[in-house]
């Protein structure tokens, strides 16, 4: 299957048809996408600042209670993002800023997956002010860098059209 076939398939999905059916749908999608950004980044900021050791009065487990907020923001952005892609797959798929953005999202997801599988259980039981393992702090720094990179890459999509 060629890339062009994939683009055509995405274009012809019900989601693509839906996105193009009314000019307001894309606009509403973008409003949801930026609301998702605020939810995801708010939770990520607080969690990663705590895991970096910059908020020594917050128990890591309490900060991690914000994960559902981050996941809600991510799901909103995934759904609207897939819709934007299906709206015009070629315009996004061939855009270098979009490709970089998707790569950064993938890396951020893998980083979050590693933390969830390897560290979450242990870190969640640490008291406030406990020294966090270097690998946990590095993972938090990587997370912040990647998610802010996602924002920048997303905003650069229009510059490469």
């Amino acid at each position: 299957m060629h890339l062009a076939d994939l683009f055509t398939a995405a274009h012809d999905t019900w989601l693509g048809v839906f996105a193009r059916s009314n000019p307001y749908i894309y606009t509403i999608g973008l409003i949801v996408h930026f609301t998702g950004l605020a939810l995801l980044m708010g939770a990520i900021l607080l969690i990663d600042i705590t895991l970096l050791g910059f908020a020594r009065t917050i128990p890591p487990g309490a900060a991690l209670k914000l994960l559902p907020v981050a996941i809600l923001g991510f799901v909103l952005n995934l759904l609207t993002g897939v819709m934007f892609f299906c709206f015009d797959p070629e315009r996004f798929g061939l855009n270098p800023a979009f490709q970089v953005k998707m790569l950064l999202v993938l890396l951020a997801g893998l980083n979050a997956l590693w933390f969830t599988l390897a560290e979450h259980r242990e870190v969640a039981h640490l008291p406030a002010g406990a020294t966090l393992a270097l690998k946990v702090r590095i993972s938090a720094a990587i997370s912040l860098t990647l998610w802010f990179g996602v924002i920048v890459a997303g905003r650069m999509i229009v510059a490469f059209q």
């Binding site: 930026f34 950004l37 939810l39 980044m41």
Partner: peptide
């Protein structure tokens, strides 16, 4: 958008 993440994110 980075600023949005900071202000609105923290307020949320």
């Amino acid at each position: 958008s980075i600023g949005l993440a900071g202000v609105v994110g923290m307020m949320v």
